[in-house]
Design a protein around this nucleic acid. Structure first.
Lengths: 347, 347
DNA sequence: TGTAAAACCGGAAACGTTTCCGATAAATAT
DNA sequence: ATATTTATCGGAAACGTTTCCGGTTTTACA
């Protein structure tokens, strides 16, 4: 009880309090704080000591207001719980930290409306920059990006972007889907199915499916709700219900692929004998399941690090550099879910 | 090129600019912004329109400085890439968002020095509160928590905390380890090993091991570097190298358990016939491997949500409430890695 | 229509920093 | 010794909001 009162009463100590107690001016304290010279070693030591005693920490809001920088960047991802996104978040934070920045994190749910809203929200936040990984790409997103006037790095998981986008872009070369399809065809599969999230998310992956087939059999295309394990299981149920099952499935990501394998196991469908399966992401888990999952590696932590570094470079150069576009080459990693066991490359 | 210049020159538009253009005082614009009455519908509409035109967004730093709140909370976790931590991060963010707060995320690497440093860093950040999930618990951590005077929620993954800790605590009942050990003994295993991270992290889990055995055979205890898949594989190598292998392994978490299973498969060790294995966390992946992993569920998203809500309650009540302690009861979920297949409870 | 109350609005002070600029003290040069 | 430079420091003005307080206008009521 007393504690709470004490806590509530505890006044924040300001630079002025420190100045008074140390018997100097506030300007001097500020100089001691940002040690940039113009102050004698003696007074500085004195001030540092007083700061220590009083437990003073400068108010970030006031600092930011004055210097017009927050030293924060935002990170907008669809869902921190999914696939390679923790890797990306991790590497973005590491890179940011190295440059003295913090990251505030926002999940957009990969939802078109929320992606837009988030961008507007972030503008209000007055953060120094933004690393964004959009999924749904509502029409207005690009123009909104162009308007904000805020440094932005886009991690491009899916779509072809306008050439005039005013943001750095680090993307996958959008060849992942093609790699998977070529692999499945090459191992002799002919009835290849697609299992994915709604069509408007990561469209490129579905396009790769369409484009690599002379014509698509719509009964072999399953659009689920999201990118989850459960969606994979539902896809498996769907394909199992067909009179004529596919002999291969291209899954939009590893989570879905793993869900399919999991359900097929219950249903007695053999992988890869009856159906070959391949996903995209190549996360750790693809190597842990039985069978291990053939996948395409998209190197999340590399992507995240690079996106953050491009952003920070732009921030520090006050935007006075050309917009960069970097593509990561994905790499197919063949494992047991598509070919015979013990016949695969390690990641 | 021109664009960059344009961008660099773009002055931030302030509330004063809006006031001038709308022909009103800044106080009025502020009222329009925080729509709390004292303003006619007409002028408000006018102002809103001008704001729209000029693309004005209020400066958060100035607001925070004035109202002495940042509407940000910090979230300090060991490593966003691990186990249930994405679940926790997700649910903390969702809860925060509902109350109009943002979360800035910090990974401490579960490292004692960094946990302390992070706490100091966060104090500088002047966020409104902190959800923290410590692993290493350096000695000074508790007293530092008591000193900050900042609302804190601790997600207690491991240690017994001092009764006078000035923070809300939501924890596991610290029975997870006991549950695992009882299970392994109950199914008749006698040489039970422990595979874990360094002893100083999540000590409770190791203590549960010690306490449930008459005496510990040190050769059956393996302390790895971290909580990773790779650590699990190394543990497997170690146990395999013993002349007299254990017949059961209690793994500090599922990642490690999965790593062990993975390596044992390569080595031809049968699970659970030769060695029964059980972990803690019960994440999705425990159900995806073959064999599926026996585990203890600790309900990450529930824990995260509750921690955030306790914190926000404390923030909003200005700390004038008793400190709460909530324990989540863990639940053992028996799967194939410890008993015969098809003999398990679904999560 | 006149008056009291209510609604609306603007000026200015504050929030806690950084930084410019001028002033003083110390150091160096003459 | 004085004159000049240099190092050190303090005052005060910003930064962009919110909010108190007083003043004006409108509305309500008799």
């Amino acid at each position: 009880m007393e504690r709470d009162i004490e806590m509530a009463n505890r006044k924040k100590v300001t630079i002025e309090d420190v100045a008074k107690k140390a018997g100097v001016g506030i300007a001097t304290v500020s100089r001691a704080l940002n040690n940039q010279g113009g102050i004698s070693a003696a007074t500085k030591a004195k001030i540092v000591q007083v700061i220590e005693e009083m437990g003073f920490t400068p108010n970030t809001s006031a600092q930011s207001l004055k210097i017009r920088q927050t030293y924060q960047i935002a990170l907008a991802v669809p869902d921190i719980r999914n696939a390679i996104i923790p890797d990306i978040a991790w590497s973005v934070e590491q890179a940011a930290k190295q440059h003295g920045y913090r990251v505030v994190q926002i999940n957009t749910l990969g939802n078109a409306r929320l992606e837009l809203e988030t961008l507007r929200e972030i503008k209000k936040l007055h953060v120094d920059g933004l690393v964004m990984m959009p999924l749904a790409y509502p029409k207005q997103l690009e123009s909104l990006i162009n308007q904000t006037g805020m440094p932005i790095s886009v991690i491009n998981y899916s779509k072809r972007l306008g050439a005039d986008l005013r943001a750095d872009v680090v993307g996958l070369s959008r060849q992942e889907g093609r790699l998977v399809m070529e692999h499945l065809k090459q191992i002799g599969r002919t009835r290849i199915a697609y299992a994915g999230a709604p069509k408007d998310k990561i469209e490129e992956r579905y396009f790769a499916y369409e484009q690599s087939l002379p014509h698509v059999d719509v009964s072999l295309v399953y659009f689920g709700e999201d990118f989850s394990f459960e969606t994979g299981r539902q896809a498996a149920n769907y394909f199992y219900s067909l009179k004529h099952m596919p002999d291969a499935i291209y899954a939009v990501n590893d989570m879905v692929a793993i869900g399919i394998v999991n359900r097929f196991k219950e249903l007695g469908v053999r992988v890869p004998e009856d159906v070959a399966i391949a996903g995209i992401d190549n996360n750790l888990w693809s190597t842990v399941t039985t069978p291990q999952i053939t996948s395409v590696s998209i190197m999340g932590s590399e992507v995240g690090r690079l996106a953050a570094e491009l952003l920070l470079k732009r921030i520090q150069s006050a935007g006075a550099t050309e917009y960069e576009r970097v593509e990561f080459e994905p790499r197919l990693i063949v494992r047991e879910s598509s070919v015979a066991a013990n016949y695969y490359t390690r990641p």
